[in-house]
Every structure is written in structure tokens, then in C-alpha cells.
């Protein structure tokens, strides 16, 4: 990407939840601001703006990434996925359903980031054990639940994605 000056804008194109989008961005525009305020994908939330809380986690080419530490320009040509893409029509995805079944959210503000991280984990490692799940969750701060129901939901989701097999 060519070097840009402050105040200059440039058109970038990327895939957002399976659809090509084109948006004009300035060099300092952050990914989450463009997703939320330019493209209307407000499901991604911003908690700390310095990469600690994990609330703003999205998937970039399938890998979880903090959208607060990502410049919008970096999305050019990439495949971006956000929480809005998790469910299939009206039905909740197995991870979402597991969160509901286990009361694994209260205010729901940090939840989108957690869902995106877990979704990426299970895509990479469908047999992820509790240790791997906890390691993934340790990148997310939740102030409401005390985490235990989130761990339960993640375990249920893993089993449900695998079709009911258990592998603890």
C-alpha cells in the first residue's frame, strides 16, 4: 500500500461477511470505526482501544484480530468476518446457541469478540480441549459472568459442532 499523507483518503475494497465492499478511508481510520460507523456493522464493540479487552475481535482471513489495533487500510483485499455473519438466517449458530443455553452472556458487550475467537478456534481445531479453550478465552475480558458459563458454553459448542461427540 502506497504511503499516504494525513488528510488524504483512498478507496479500499475488501470482503465483509461474504460481500465485497468498497469504502474510502483515511490513513488513521481504525478498522472498527469503519466497520461500525461507515458500514453499519455495529455488532463489533470497542472496549479498550488498546488491544487488551478483546471485545472488538473480528476475523481477518479466518484468524482472530483486534479491530482496534488494525488500520482500515490493512483490510484492503482481505476477507473480514464479524459477528453478524455467525448465524445462518434466523437460527443461532451452535456457538451462539450454546451461549444462550448456558447463560454465558449478561450485558453482551464483550460477547461478539469472544464468539469470533471461539469460532476461529473451532475452525482451526475442532477437537480443542478445555485448556486450549481457556487459553483462547484468556484474551477476552468479561466483567459480568465470571467466565465459568462461557467455558461451559464453549465446551458445549465444540461438541455440538462435532455432532454430539464428546472429547474432553
Amino acid at each position: 500500500m502506497p504511503r499516504m499523507k494525513a488528510g488524504e483518503t483512498r478507496e479500499i475494497q475488501f470482503r465483509l461477511n461474504g460481500r465485497e465492499v468498497t469504502v474510502r478511508v483515511a490513513p488513521r481510520d481504525l478498522m472498527h470505526d469503519v466497520l461500525r460507523h461507515r458500514l453499519g456493522a455495529t455488532g463489533t464493540h470497542v472496549g479498550c482501544e488498546h488491544g487488551v479487552c478483546g471485545a472488538c475481535t473480528v476475523q481477518v482471513n479466518g484468524a482472530p484480530a483486534r479491530s482496534c489495533l488494525m488500520l482500515a487500510g490493512q483490510a484492503d483485499g482481505q476477507d473480514i468476518r464479524t459477528v453478524e455473519d455467525l448465524c445462518d438466517g434466523a437460527d443461532l449458530s451452535p456457538i451462539q446457541a450454546a451461549f444462550r443455553d448456558n447463560f454465558a452472556l449478561q450485558c453482551g458487550f464483550c460477547t461478539a469478540g469472544i464468539l469470533m475467537s471461539l469460532d476461529a478456534l473451532f475452525a482451526r481445531d475442532p477437537d480443542a480441549g478445555e485448556t486450549a479453550i481457556r487459553d483462547t478465552l484468556s484474551g477476552h475480558l468479561c466483567r459480568c459472568t465470571g467466565y465459568a458459563p462461557i467455558v461451559r458454553a464453549a465446551l458445549q459448542a465444540r461438541d455440538s459442532i462435532k455432532g454430539g461427540q464428546t472429547d474432553a
Binding site: V83, L86, L92, F99, R100, L105
Partner: peptide
């Protein structure tokens, strides 16, 4: 089940910045 959850889990919550 919580009536709040389907909305929040699908990213359709309506927080102040939304």
C-alpha cells in the same frame, strides 16, 4: 432462556454508540 440473548448474540444489540 433469556429474551435478551438472541439479539445480543447476533450483534443486533442497541447500545448507545449503535
Amino acid at each position: 432462556q433469556r429474551t435478551e440473548d438472541a439479539t445480543l448474540l447476533t450483534g443486533r444489540g442497541r447500545f448507545i454508540d449503535d
